[in-house]
Design a protein around this nucleic acid. Sequence first.
DNA 1: AGATAGTCTGAGCAATCCCTCATGTTCTGC
DNA 2: GCAGAACATGAGGGATTGCTCAGACTATCT
Lengths: 203, 203
Amino acid sequence: MTGPSARRVPSQARSRATVEAVVEAAAQVFERHGYGAGTTNRIAERAGVSIGSVYQYFDDKDAIVEAVALRHLADGAERLLPVLARLDGDLADVEPEVVLREVLVAMLDLHRDRPRLHRLLFEETPLTEAVRARGQALEDAAARMVATWLARRPDPPQHPALTARLLVEAVESWSHRVVLHPPPDADEPAFVTAATRILAAGL
Amino acid sequence: MTGPSARRVPSQARSRATVEAVVEAAAQVFERHGYGAGTTNRIAERAGVSIGSVYQYFDDKDAIVEAVALRHLADGAERLLPVLARLDGDLADVEPEVVLREVLVAMLDLHRDRPRLHRLLFEETPLTEAVRARGQALEDAAARMVATWLARRPDPPQHPALTARLLVEAVESWSHRVVLHPPPDADEPAFVTAATRILAAGL
DNA sequence: AGATAGTCTGAGCAATCCCTCATGTTCTGC
DNA sequence: GCAGAACATGAGGGATTGCTCAGACTATCT
């Protein structure tokens, strides 16, 4: 329920470029220095912009973080939702093991992109309500798509919605882990195989 | 590879009480205010101790966080390892569904204790190497115990170690989630049932 | 061309925050 | 009971940070 920003809204091309430069610079600075050491002055410097310009468009430091997080979420959704949409298309009648592998691999690719930034945004930073809600909405959407896929299979589970959420959760946390803390026991393909086997057998 | 602390080591009962008060106060302050706003002066105040006394026994703020994290890890291990030890005892020949439920419930109880502190220590804070290593060691121990349980069952999986790690990971992240962000789809018993069903079927 | 609104600048203010240190108090061993 | 070690105190130094503001430059419109 954060009120609308009291700041200026960029209208010209020049200022839109400024805002984008700030968001990208903030992503890089946070990635490299973490949240606390990612100072606003450093962000401005890296963006090649005066600190004053930053505060023309962002209420405060948290607003910058929020913008970075929202852009990161949007990128993720843009890459992941198409794959999940295939559950209702060409993947509808494929064996679950293959489907799960497809989804897991896509998730791994996604997390490989900016793992440190991802971790920082969603684990080292107190999330804004807006970001939390948006992330929740995305996870809900993903869970719904998986749930309808489950419900249409032969011998569907008793609680497709709940099962779907658990699946999403497991895939999310596993890919998280394998990117940030690669397990010593095995390489990535073995990991994917074992994970798909566990989940596929449970359906 | 952090060198030994240059600070005083408490030898009298009075100073040991001070150190313990500081650690507990820090846990409470971090729990309430987060890492950034959990200032050292506030910790000292809550501990009923001068800020000077804090720095008699801790090198810096991070050393306080480290002490809190290590104590939290020790508490968790003390509560969880006995349950896992039963895998080689009275739970050795029970159906996997029952075993998994037992473990999952124990994990849920554990996370219910101080969920906010847990989240903060391991997700909002840059971990010290010592803490990271200790946490890794505990997870390794847990994974090993699960792995030997798997290996001794009829029809064991091809890679017990990897499968065990995936199971531990899933149980950990699920119980994490259900405590911090209870799913809207179902209550906790339904969650436990669905989770155990998925994992048990996959073995 | 003048006027208005948009954009940019960066020195520096106000507010913390972490941590020190000089001083005082309590304990322990002899 | 005394000396020395352990323990406790808290005002404030030094450093840093988020953010402001007064003013200058640029774009757009009539």
